[in-house]
Design a protein around this nucleic acid. Sequence first.
DNA 1: AAGAAAAAAGACAGCGCTGTCAATTCGGTT
DNA 2: AACCGAATTGACAGCGCTGTCTTTTTTCTT
Lengths: 345, 345
Amino acid sequence: MGQQTITRATIFDVAQRASVSIKTVSRVVNREPNVRERTRAKVEQAIAELQYRPDSSARNLARQKSHLIGLVYDDPAAYELPSSGYIIRLQQGALRACRASMHELLIHPCNFRERGVGSALKSVIEDARLAGIVLAPPLSNMMRLVRAVQETGTPFVRISPGQKIRNHMCIATNDAEATAEIVDHLAQLGHRKIGFVTGDETHAAVSNRYEGFQKGLVRNGLRLSAKRVVSGNNSFESGERAAAKLLTLADRPTAVVCANDDMAAGVVRQAKKLGFNLPDDLSVTGFDDVVLARQILPTLTTVRQPLSRMAERAVEMLLKGKTGSQHEVVPAEMQLRDSTGPAPN
Amino acid sequence: MGQQTITRATIFDVAQRASVSIKTVSRVVNREPNVRERTRAKVEQAIAELQYRPDSSARNLARQKSHLIGLVYDDPAAYELPSSGYIIRLQQGALRACRASMHELLIHPCNFRERGVGSALKSVIEDARLAGIVLAPPLSNMMRLVRAVQETGTPFVRISPGQKIRNHMCIATNDAEATAEIVDHLAQLGHRKIGFVTGDETHAAVSNRYEGFQKGLVRNGLRLSAKRVVSGNNSFESGERAAAKLLTLADRPTAVVCANDDMAAGVVRQAKKLGFNLPDDLSVTGFDDVVLARQILPTLTTVRQPLSRMAERAVEMLLKGKTGSQHEVVPAEMQLRDSTGPAPN
DNA sequence: AAGAAAAAAGACAGCGCTGTCAATTCGGTT
DNA sequence: AACCGAATTGACAGCGCTGTCTTTTTTCTT
């Protein structure tokens, strides 16, 4: 049973069986208007009986574009593990949207350090007549590549782009608001004295987080104390040093918000070394949700970029077909784990 | 400069410019024989001048198949990190081969726990008219899926298939030989008394490793001592227990080969606890090259499945177009790190 | 019930390429 | 120079679908 027919049914076979023209079949298949209900049913039955499925090559040729969406991301030279989770999550989201809309996903890791990537990318896009492109960071910020994509005339969406461009579509997340929510969470747990460890200020995302921290304090009726803000440089060690400072303060904070996970891990390590019991004596939060965040003890409450959702929305935006500037923010997801608890009294 | 022409050159434009027929252009483009050198040059110049690139949709339609290779692998329910490195490595290899041959890669994670995956897979294959499929483990062993793929009539290659099937193409690695090479390595370092920690015997790969261990001893003129073989169950803890036994032996081994990395990590931990200095007093090896292998101290000498190479070879085998049974073994790569050193004297 | 407007259905020419087979040219022989 | 087989080249019909435009049918007016 279920033996496949030697040669697949074509639109012509369906038309014949339903006694209509091929154009009418095409209308039914593509859900075009102006088909009487009775006719539609007749055609649909013929389709079912013949197990007809449109041939995408033919359709692509006639429509002059494919049903392929390209996902372009940085090709880590050695494909080392750290970034693989990142990439897989992007792929997952993009794939979800593609499947929902009968599209396929073409992955295109691309090493921007090589010369000629731009034109190589253009070739792929044009050769396969991609229906759209999703550009993931950090490539979404490399103007050389963005321009290459623009030149193909293919619609594209950038994920977390640094700088905006004219007439762009993009999906971003909200570092600031997520950090503010971390503060909300801590405030709800009764914390009133909250410290912050800043990161490398040159990263836009990182300074957004500090901004969000301040916003969080304000909306929870807390005061920003300059003493409780110490600067780090994104490294584990700088986290340790920051903790050493913060925890020896006369009026020390009961919670420390860090601009990234590595520094948070450093804070945790240093706090333990100083004899603090986490989360009873001190709550700590990070940002990014790197693998390490789940490996240290206590596991780290942090914020995870909704990469999968962002990629999904990116593809959906692409397929919506609307042109013009569009900008969507997908809220980041707080990951509640064991490093945060009620404030000590 | 470099402004793209509004409408791409077609094969017809090229033919006209070179004053030949479109068929001749087609011959040149597809490297078919029977084209005079002079004609070929003329056509090639026209191609260059017009920046002609064949349209893949049209080609797909005429050829009745696409230039797309499908990579089918297990879709980890939550895309948790452990498997992402695995998948990325497969993708990398497949992509390398695809690019070399002007093909594109369609990724198709697929959750075999759901019902109907088989027919969903068939649809994708037939709709996109895939040129070939690569089935990665563990899917390569799920006969339900393999049969679905077979029914489409599309050529496919399985990676590390458990059971063979009639007229199959597959790529495997060599657990046994790799383990024997580990023994070679240790023997070269002067080790004569080598212990082994077995794993869960139900896994074919794992028992192959024990087999390889024995082979390695033999070919290095060493004797297999039953006392030095203790069984584990693949877990870290079982490694610790195994080490406790092995290292308290009167005539204790100077090196311990483990059937997987987790157990090796357990052995390392236990050995350190017992006061051994690694690798001076004891060498330890693992298998798999999990992330942990590079995180423990000393970093673990182990064996890594050549996933990327396997996927690459799989695609190449597919594109070679030869039918009939084919079976290729890609040797696993030993990863020399710090847990092995010269035997103590 | 005739006529006009709107809705439904169909005819047909591409889309850009490849495959088949026929036509031409070439190189070498007598 | 005429002739033959082999090497080249070309003509043209699809591949299966969509877009445009035309024809037919239905529905609504008066």
